[in-house]
Design a protein around this nucleic acid. Structure first.
Lengths: 190, 190, 190, 190
DNA sequence: AGATAAGCGAGACGGTACGTCGTGTCTTAGC
DNA sequence: GCTAAGACACGACGTACCGTCTCGCTTATCT
């Protein structure tokens, strides 16, 4: 039996769990990650503080649980006709995720928190949604290639840097980026 | 004259200023950005808390002032014989800065803080050391090109993403990255 | 039932309350009222600062709660054989209270603080231990009189002024004061 | 020569001295003794902080200098026809001084501060305006008596206690108090 | 007349208490 | 035995005032 041992007692309230996850989603957009507190989450969810601490250690854990599923879904793009279209479509999804999606906001907050806290770094390493999504795309457009990290970084890096350095997402030229992915800086000889 | 207006009053103590900047440098390495507090900085610097608040609003501001000069210096690479060597050399400096340099640790902490605080985002936007350094390199290897943001992102992005997503810096293949910068994902047709 | 409403939540810690009251008692004697701080009280009591602020607003409130019971007890004198003996005995208790008793030191500090802070003035007005004690004595020696404020001031005033103006308590002639209370300044015609 | 030794240097600014004394007077009424700060006094007087500290150690010293002359003057009553009138007139002046006069407010603040600070106690002991004024009255109405402390306390005490315990000054029966000063609590035998 | 010296307003200095807030733990009553 | 409520010890927050110091300047007396 995989079922966890339970010897009586009130079972965990799924309602409380959902309330906490939604509270985190809401608070992230309303006040931002830094101003989001465990106390605030509990109050917003209408839940006791101990109930929060019983199931999660930090706000990062809650946020991770709250946004990882959405993130995976948003980064999974449908196959396209050409390889260029496939990459373009993926980069578009990536940009939208990082720049506009609530789940993406959560992910960015977690990445930032990871920079300040090794525990968070370890947490998000358990499910690398960004690299996984890119790997899937690369596997489709070049099934005979190993799809190593190198290609993944080439694919994600420029868009990632654009967003993370605070540039306007609307001014990112996805098409040009997709072309450069295949052709590089230019035709000139290095 | 650029001279600051002074109508009496004790002048600012350069000694106190240096003590605070050094304290921030030290504390960043010793306890990390998250555990660094304004109070801790003041105590470590042997300075009154009001003196810190008088000249800086947040620890981010202090850290920015403490590491921006070093960052600029570390990212300025000497010209190389070939364009490939130039890029390789730059990517190496970039990787070392982001992954190993104390100034780079400060910069990463600031980037992360910017994700949580718009004020910090604005602060680091006043002096984009990363983009500026890449622009300088690109100007040398392709003087006839405008050196737009697109090329900058292609150059920095992959390395930046590698480091920021927590990968081992030692396993980053700088040479391959430099080649790909010129040639793209590969010879295959999109 | 007078019972306070309680719908869950950890109950107030009587231990913490006592610790705070004792800390105030101790600190008043050790460092004096002026040097006594909310922070110092909390530390001395081994209690969080929030716990102090949760139940009291100012050090004056704590001190009031800490010494009002003792004050009442010390000012309640046993009935004596003659009216003169009764008054003498009361004035002696009053002098000892104001000049030597720890509770009296607290009361003097509160009277002084009331002079600087209307809130304290209002606080000590809720339980006028001095006037109450005098009223009790006057009621015993002259049950047929209304025991108005006038007589109370005649009774307490001289001793009170002697102590509050910093004179040596030992040189106060209680017997003479008691006699004067009945006979006034002297036999001379006004 | 009593003149202080001075071998050159700018003389003390009488204008600054007056500004400080007036600032203290004003601030005492506006914000009260407790909220009055050395910094606030300096700012209000338009004077450097060091200038205040150069001539006075504490706000109590300034206040003492600012109100002692007025106090003496206000407590000096003109001779009256009868001894009863003399005492009544004095008690009235005493009540007005303690309850309504700005100088009296300063004096009450100093008395209160003395309760918290021995230095202030010592300061106001150098010039006991209350006892001095009462002694003068007693000397006039009973020149053949030594005018010891006992009579002074009988005279001042009741009014002093009335005011200091926060009673409404308007409800103090000066005439009754004056009569009682001569006759005591009543005709009953102790 | 020039030097010397002390007072002046301004304001930064190292400290420390303020009252508030968030932390993670605990102890209730209620379901 | 999980829940909501809320008190607990702890410590950082940013502000205010402490008393001291260091500026440039002014105003006097003493060579």
């Amino acid at each position: 039996m995989i079922e966890t041992k339970r010897r009586g007692g009130r079972p965990r309230s799924e309602q409380a769990r959902q309330a906490v996850l939604h509270a985190v989603d809401d608070l992230l957009l309303e006040v931002g990650y830094a101003a989001m507190t465990m106390k605030g989450i509990a109050v917003r969810a209408g839940v006791g503080r101990q109930t929060v601490y019983r199931w999660w250690s930090t706000k990062a854990e809650i946020l991770f649980e709250a946004c990882v599923d959405d993130a995976e879904e948003e980064l999974a793009v449908a196959p396209a006709r050409t390889r260029l279209a496939e990459v373009t479509s993926y980069l578009d999804a990536l940009m939208r995720f990082l720049a506009y999606s609530p789940a993406g906001a959560g992910y960015r907050a977690l990445l930032a928190a990871a920079e300040h806290d090794p525990a968070v770094k370890q947490l998000i390493a358990t499910k690398d949604v960004l690299r996984d999504s890119a790997r899937a795309v690369l596997h489709r457009i070049a099934p005979h290639r190993p799809a190593g990290d190198h290609a993944i970084d080439l694919l994600i890096g420029p868009t990632f840097f654009w967003i993370m350095s605070g540039r306007d997402p609307a001014q990112l030229d996805i098409d040009e980026l997709a072309r450069s992915f295949f052709h590089g800086f230019g035709s000139e000889e290095p």
